[in-house]
Design a protein around this nucleic acid. Sequence first.
RNA 1: CGGGGUGUAGCGCAGUUGGCAGCGCACCGCGUUUGGGACGCGGGGGUCGGCGGUUCAAGUCCGCCCACCCCGACCA
Length: 595
Amino acid sequence: MRMSLLFSQTLREAPAEAQSEGYAHLVRAGYVRQMATGIFSILPLGKRVQQKIEAILRDEMNAIGGQELSMPVVLPAEIWKETGRWYSVGSEMARLKDRNQRDLVLAMTHEEAVGDLVRREIRSHRQLPRLIYHIQTKFRDDPRPRAGLIRVREFTMKDSYSLDAGWEGLERQYRAHYQAYFNIFRRCGLPVIAVASDTGMMGGKLSHEFMFLHPIGEDTLLLCASCGYAANRQVARFGKQPEPAQPLMELEKVHTPQTKTIQDLAHFLRIAEHQTAKAVFITARLVDNGEEYERLVMAILRGDTELNETKLANALKARDLRPAREDEILASGAVPGFASPVDLSGVLVVVDELIPHSTNLVAGANEADYHLRNVNYGRDYTANLVADLTAARAGDACPQCAAPLRAERGVEVGNIFQLGSWYSQAMGCTFQDEDGQVRPVIMGSYGIGVGRLIGCLAEAYHDEQGLKLPVSVAPFQVHLVALGGKHSSQPLDYAERLYNDLQAAGLEVLFDDRAESPGVKFNDADLIGLPVRITVSSRTLENGSVEFKLREQTDRTPLPLDQAVVHASSEINRLLAELYNRIKFDPALAGFLDF
RNA sequence: CGGGGUGUAGCGCAGUUGGCAGCGCACCGCGUUUGGGACGCGGGGGUCGGCGGUUCAAGUCCGCCCACCCCGACCA
């Protein structure tokens, strides 16, 4: 590609809305342009990156038996009604009507589309297992897109769906994906770890997320350096340490004005926060016999800990949780800020598993400005449910080896999920087994966000001058810079020949043949960030050479003219090999021990 | 949806007390220049986010709306 013909331009300054560094460089270098909040055009340079990533995705998916197909972006509402998600998914799903007023949706994921295909095609156990995938546009009307390509509304996703006759088959395909995903990220040069994640209520047994550790990430991960335990905070377990039990003491009401928070209370009574009980009110959407209803829930935690809403939702098998409104709390007879489960009825009480092991806690008295001392679970109140409700924090004990956990932020660039038969059953995806029995297809789903991956790569690979994407995903391999003034056409002529020779040798070349000053050309080369730069100028030609430079290094070396092509090829091969070795796949660190 | 911020040329920004809409970069033409974002001369480009109001006069004051960014809620 000649830069004189390139569609995009580099920008000297990034637009003000480009906040994160990697994204600002993607914009300045001309890889992407934003059109609206969370909606982007991918320019030719970015498109080449995307195509390289997609080639890697196809390669690795095909290697584990994947068959590529293509499912529509616009889907009929009927199939979403069949699974119920037409009703349960909110406004993040874009809905539209066709000219005949039929309901349509923009696909935010493709389980329903897969279900519809599978029930038409799969009849026999002889047609299983199968693995299908596509690389397709998704639209999710996210309430808050942010950070450039990291969180968007329209995006391209590789999603694959495994179809098996039983759970053993699913397990095999799940593991195959687990390995394939590490291969993919390694080939792209993105360091990731796998963490255990929430399976929600879709009946899935197991789910992992592939995380790029970076402060820009929106997920908090808890990691153990000594045994490799790794989990999203939503599901992270940890070793809880009960305080030593004390002899039970008499309930005692104390006047505690202005102590609406645990901190105030502990300070006022001169006790530690772990000697208090905290009541958190949540309204849960529950399902019973297919009937949906709302219920006020009081979650009781030790005062020094925090509620993990995902754990609570899972413990309750709730569809949904939201903070309770003040009027709902008051209607239950509790007083916000001074609430307690003692002598309270009509509320679903869920206590953290630490509470039965904690004695003589201070809890609310359900009366403004009063608390109760020496509240004890079992004696003074009971619960509908005892469960792990506490959010793990940095420094908490690893649930496997008790070493202190570390907390880090991460971006979810991929996930793998054992769906089971939830969708098959909802949509009638069945097959006959060897015995003639009709059984539901066991499914798994596996996603990688392509644009988000590019966003992460830009964060991982840049410096002040610009991008420096790994050779496997860089839009071109060689940036050929021709310098030269009006007095001599010699450098440009030679560069033209070299351009042809490099391409003839199979290399991907971006040729800066513009009539720009050297500074402009070098700065653009740094900004676009191709791994290899070759400069031809009258100065280099004088001593029969060209100048060779790697983006990741500062030294420039002269190269005899006749060796330029061979040297560039071998350097690119070396960079590819080095990239593959740089990112180590360590199953233990990756969380493979979890299953 | 709540809180905060910003909208002036393609990008970055200035615009005072309400009084001719500007600067740098980018772009076009001519010439000079060519190893780290060159220089000279000449040019083109504006619904000052939109609508309404106040005023002799609005980029500037008032009201409503919209878009974008950040924080939170949210995230199949």
